[in-house]
């Protein structure tokens, strides 16, 4: 089991699913939804902006590209809300999410 899901990896799945990967705002929304759904089961969830290919031309720019998970994003559904607190300026790459039911990674 991989120990986390990086966004470039998540969007490479698009090739397997025979759809084009989403772009722009849709791409950011996809990542947020993926974290909400998959975050429960992976001990380390998703990437930072610096490794995020959506910062490339064609993807979102500015604040969205730099930090798709901002502190003011809705936190419902996560045990303590801390799951959303990335600190990319300190080079944090993953979010720690509590495992549930012992079935995670």
């Amino acid at each position: 089991m991989a120990d986390g899901i990086k966004s470039d990896e998540f969007f490479r799945i698009a090739a397997l699913a025979s759809v084009a990967p989403p772009e722009g705002e849709t791409r950011t929304r996809n990542l947020l939804a993926a974290r909400k759904v998959l975050g429960t089961y992976t001990s380390r969830v998703v990437e930072t902006a610096r490794s995020e290919p959506e910062a490339q031309p064609g993807g979102p720019s500015g604040e969205d590209a730099a930090c798709p998970l901002r502190p003011d994003e809705p936190r419902d559904g996560f045990p303590d809300g801390k799951a959303f607190e990335l600190a990319p300026e300190r080079g944090e790459r993953f979010v720690q999410v509590p495992r549930v039911l012992g079935g995670g990674t």
Partner: peptide, 14 residues
């Protein structure tokens, strides 16, 4: 498309 991506992810190896 999002749900297809999510589903393909969780069914992929690993």
């Amino acid at each position: 498309r999002l749900r297809i991506l999510l589903g393909t992810t969780v069914l992929s190896q690993g």
